[in-house]
Design a protein around this nucleic acid. Structure first.
Lengths: 312, 312
DNA sequence: AAGACTTCCATCTGTTTCAAGTTCATGTCA
DNA sequence: TGACATGAACTTGAAACAGATGGAAGTCTT
């Protein structure tokens, strides 16, 4: 028994006649007739009684028909799935994201993406960058968005960005006049920084050190969100990564904090990381492209946060 | 996308390699390779990443594989059903039976049948012969076993039997000496008969009438089971059909009632009746054959009840 | 009621078409 | 070297075609 036989059998059951079935299938009547015969030969029992110029399906034919119908409905399902995959509407997307962008930046992008791909299922998990690296490596996430230690070799598959950090100041801070904030301007300022293990903290410490200054650390936080709250309240200035800045601009009201370029370069190295062995799904690639573009726009168009709050 | 492509795809997914799959399918490596390519062409996206001399199924391939696997399991189901039908192990059997044989005679035969066909599902309904005729005609029963009015034209499909009725006597009745009981011997005997509408009653009345006798009706019952109970208790003699006799011998203890041939012929016309339009299932035909043979044995071997209770 | 007509199916002959396989060779990549 | 892709040339077999025939059973006409 093969698919062609089933197809013809199905048509005959539905149309109730060989010649009708032949028409529907765009075949000749003898072809259909032979097909049914060959099917009956294969399975070893009659499917139709030929009687009074009509075909009467035997009860066995009805039993078979039910089962064959269910095969065709499965095939239909597969075809629908294929169509959905073609239209990038089918798939699962498991994202591991470091804490910073996981509250505002990534959800915004993801929301845009899901509007275009309403049927895609997504899991977004917030983890430390370390955890993300291992989870992605073991194929638990399709995509990781995390900080990457500077020393790490640039993997071919992964997309790595070095985001230049910027300075967050209270809007009424005298230094806000400057387009660019330099190390020298800050060495007396009270600073709000991340915890001492964090890359940015260490880079800053080192820079201040090299310049012969000491950093005036007033507050340490785990994340930039609270840090910026403190800046807002005028407790100090902070060197933050641009993603945190963008996140902040998406929920805070303008006029309290301003962002300025900072020199020398303090970069936060982040990356889109993918499982090394297994290929990525089309959905993953699709979303990665979008995410990639949004991150690139940080490099290309820093004015989106540097000019934030500036009346046009 | 067709079955062959799915088959090959499945083999590649299972074996993890093109050449392994080729071996399993007894094909050459290029054939399998081409098949996968053609499948990828058809569906419009990649199923495998060729990478480091290995094949890595894409996530999409995994999605498809699941669905395709379920198609194959359905196909497997169909093949099993076909096998069961071939072995006469698959099907439903809806029997309508008149009251007489429905308690002992038919259940015995059905039990034998079901031992041979353990998977077959059966419904046995007891109805009047009239009801059975209409229910079978409307295809509610696959098989009817019922009395048939003498006048009814013998339908081609139906198997009709004229069963010669016999005389049931108390074992110690003086007439039990005779091999054959005749009308004349009975005209003074108290008789236990069925209700006046029943064919046997009417035939008897007519025969007695024609012989110039009057029938001495002592008891009227609806079925033969109670009638035979009365015979057992010595209240009279009865003219019963052989199926009722066989039923009785299957549950009663010998020595109380004996059966003797009766003359002239009083026949009960019964039949195996089938739906006129729809073909019968193989299971129906199979069971009908068995039932047919058992009924024929009544005609061929009347000694099975005529000699009942006789010590060998 | 008989005959003419039509429909439906099975079957046959002869031919064509096409997918899918073969073998053998070659190229590539890690 | 092993695993895959690709190509050319050829073979095979299933499945279609067209076209004809015959039988059985309805329908329509007269």
């Amino acid at each position: 028994m093969n698919l062609k036989q089933m197809e013809v059998f199905r048509a005959v059951m539905l149309s109730g006649s060989i010649s009708q079935a032949a028409k529907q299938l765009y075949r000749t009547q003898p072809a259909v007739s032979m097909m049914i015969s060959s099917l009956e030969d294969d399975i070893g029992f009659q499917l139709f009684e030929r009687h009074k110029k009509r075909l009467y399906p035997t009860p066995e034919a009805h039993y078979l028909y039910k089962e064959i119908e269910s095969i065709f409905s499965r095939i239909q399902d597969v075809n629908l799935t294929v169509k959905d995959i073609q239209n990038k509407q089918y798939g699962f997307l498991r994202i591991g994201c470091m804490p910073g962008p996981s509250s505002f930046f990534l959800p915004d992008i993801l929301a845009d993406f899901l509007e275009e791909h309403p049927q895609v299922q997504v899991s977004l998990q917030t983890r430390t960058s370390d955890a993300i690296a291992t989870w992605v490596a073991s194929n638990q996430y399709d995509l990781g968005f995390a900080e990457i230690p500077i020393h790490q070799a640039k993997n071919e598959r992964n997309k790595i960005f070095d985001l230049p950090c910027i300075c967050a100041l209270p809007a009424d801070h005298p230094l806000a006049e400057n387009e660019v904030i330099t190390l020298e301007m800050l060495h007396t300022e009270p600073m709000i920084t991340l915890y001492p293990d964090h890359m940015i903290f260490r880079d800053l410490i080192q820079l201040f050190d090299q310049g012969g200054y000491q950093m005036n650390v007033r507050l340490q936080t785990r994340f930039f969100t609270p840090a910026l709250k403190f800046v807002e309240r005028g407790l100090g200035v902070s060197i933050v990564d641009p993603i945190s800045a963008i996140s902040y601009t998406s929920y805070a009201t303008p006029g309290k904090v301003v962002f300025r370029s900072f020199e020398p370069d303090v970069a936060l190295r982040i990356g889109l990381i993918f499982p090394a062995e297994a290929p990525s799904s089309m959905i993953t690639m699709e979303f990665s492209k979008l995410l990639y573009n949004r991150v690139e726009s940080i490099l290309d168009q820093p004015e989106q946060f540097l000019n934030w709050g500036k009346e046009e």
